[in-house]
């Protein structure tokens, strides 16, 4: 790990800030333009999810290394109600809000590694990683 920072997600303006910070870090990690766009889009979905479903949260942005490969790792955490059925939450089109139900399932397709930990009443922790090719 070479650099890291944590950003709060408490309002719509923060979602925009998260996108900008993730874009800058993705560039620094050496991701291609398409991969930058994918991880920024995933970050936007996950930040909005934290806001809509948990009333807010935070994201840690880290540049990580695996041998010679660099990558970008984002860790979203919130203290919201948690997700009772993770498998169902990852199905395309499934939503308990009024969205399209693509936030979680779509984000998972946009990154290389996706880890979701959650339980009712215990908040949600989502870690995603995109590696430079």
């Amino acid at each position: 790990m070479t650099s890291s920072g944590e950003l709060p997600i408490n309002g719509n303006g923060d979602v925009v800030l998260v996108r900008q910070e993730v874009r800058a870090a993705a560039l620094e990690a050496g991701l291609s333009l398409v991969d930058q766009t994918k991880i920024v889009t995933a970050a936007s979905e996950l930040a909005r999810n934290a806001l809509v479903y948990a009333g807010g949260g935070r994201v840690r942005i880290e540049i990580v290394r695996n041998g010679v490969r660099a990558g970008l790792r984002l860790t979203f955490s919130d203290d919201g109600p948690g997700i009772p059925d993770i498998e169902q939450a990852l199905v395309d089109g499934w939503t308990t809000g009024n969205g399209l139900g693509l936030g979680l399932s779509g984000s998972r397709r946009l990154v290389d590694e996706f880890d979701l930990r959650s339980a009712p009443g215990e908040g949600t922790l989502i870690t995603v990683t995109k590696w430079a090719r």
């Binding site: 766009t37 889009t41 395309d92 779509g106 397709r109």
Partner: peptide, 14 residues
């Protein structure tokens, strides 16, 4: 629409 945006939209499922 930028090419990277089109690629990402399709992968997102939109």
């Amino acid at each position: 629409m930028r090419p990277a945006v089109a690629i990402t939209l399709v992968e997102l499922g939109l």
